[in-house]
């Protein structure tokens, strides 16, 4: 088991390392010059070159990449003397449009994304799994048909329409205030304000994801119920309830861990549309701003790598969880 885990962890690091190279290469090839962007439209070429040097962009791409990697562990210092900027480790670079280190910008946005992801995750797993089990148990009845309708609507309605519908409804019911919406309130000092900030975004994401989990749970439970070992359980006198909760769900829900881990890991990189609709300044909102408005390459790079790191990390968690659950994986 330990060997299995250490192997997975090693692969995860290799993947991140290679990924940073690829991302760096892509951004080196993009026809955007951060040095030029750093000093406005009518800029003196001398200043541009000075900025280029200050940002460490006048050296070969591989060397820039190496500095970037070192910066992650040691922090980075740009320029000298009065104009010196220092970004402590882990430094992802310096964002001129925000006049701040990328790490700082991301750290400001992360609580929004994290809260959104966790709340939505809890909500959608609860709805999806319970509705899925219910639909499987009542297969063929109106509850089952209701679940099919839910799955169809939830998975085919684009999230920006679903989000807008919910936003407008909440607004018309005076449950959402567009002026204060999206300013961070601590859940400790003002729990109601905290929930008001997030609840509709949670519902939006949860409805979209719960549809998929309802379908998965339903079909997995139904499929498992035809397995021979379920018949064995009945044959030895296990009551229907325990056949479902002890014998069936154990195998039926295991594959959901894969989906859950990857979906959650993906969401931690930022829910672009939902954050935008609900004015939540999370990682997704921030990266879309960096891409469309600021051409802020260091910030885009930072969010890309962070999102990838979350994804890879939760992939790792999924592998370990699966091995824990399924002895066939664990013992081979």
């Amino acid at each position: 088991m330990l060997k299995y885990i250490s192997k997975r962890v090693f692969y995860a690091f290799v993947m991140l390392f290679v990924l940073s190279m690829v991302v760096y290469l892509i951004f080196g090839l993009v026809p955007i010059d951060p040095a030029k962007l750093s000093c406005g439209t009518h800029c003196n070429p001398v200043v541009v070159e000075a900025n280029r040097h200050r940002l460490g962009l006048d050296i070969p791409l591989w060397h820039q990449w190496w500095n970037f990697i070192m910066g992650l562990f040691q922090g980075r210092t740009y320029g000298e003397g009065a104009a010196m900027i220092h970004c402590p480790a882990p430094a992802f670079g310096y964002s001129f449009p925000n006049n701040a280190c990328v790490t700082e910008v991301m750290a400001g946005a992360f609580p929004f994304t994290f809260t959104l992801a966790v709340g939505a995750f809890i909500l959608w797993m609860t709805i999806g799994i319970s509705f899925g089990i219910l639909a499987a148990r009542k297969k063929g009845t109106y509850i089952d048909r209701l679940s099919t309708a839910f799955v169809l609507i939830g998975s085919s309605l684009p999230i920006f329409i679903l989000g807008l519908l919910i936003y407008i409804t909440a607004f018309l019911l005076h449950l959402i205030d567009p002026i204060t919406q999206g300013t961070w309130v601590s859940p400790l000092s003002d729990p109601i304000g905290f929930f008001r900030n997030f609840i509709f975004a949670w519902i939006t994401l949860a409805l979209a994801y719960a549809a998929i989990y309802t379908r998965l749970t339903r079909s997995n439970v139904i499929e498992t119920s035809t397995e021979d070992y379920i018949r064995t359980a009945r044959a030895k006198g296990v009551a229907e309830r325990d056949v479902l909760y002890r014998h069936n769900l154990r195998t039926a829900l295991a594959p959901l861990i894969t989906n859950a881990g990857l979906d959650f890991g993906g969401l931690l990189g930022g829910a672009i549309i939902t954050e935008r609709v609900f004015q939540l300044p999370g990682l997704g909102y921030m990266s879309i701003k960096a891409v469309l408005r600021d051409y802020d390459l260091p910030l885009i790079m930072g969010t890309t790598l962070l999102a990838a790191a979350f994804f890879i990390f939760f992939n790792l968690i999924v592998d370990i969880a699966y091995a824990y659950l399924d002895p066939r994986v664990r013992l081979n």
């Binding site: 397995e227 021979d228 018949r231 064995t232 030895k236 154990r250 399924d326 002895p327 066939r328």
Partner: peptide, 19 residues
């Protein structure tokens, strides 16, 4: 079931719970 009457099945590969 399993008390007075018991049953064994054709395919022992799939008749036992894998977990």
């Amino acid at each position: 079931r399993g008390g007075t009457v018991s049953m064994i099945f054709q395919d022992p590969m799939s008749a036992l719970h894998p977990y």
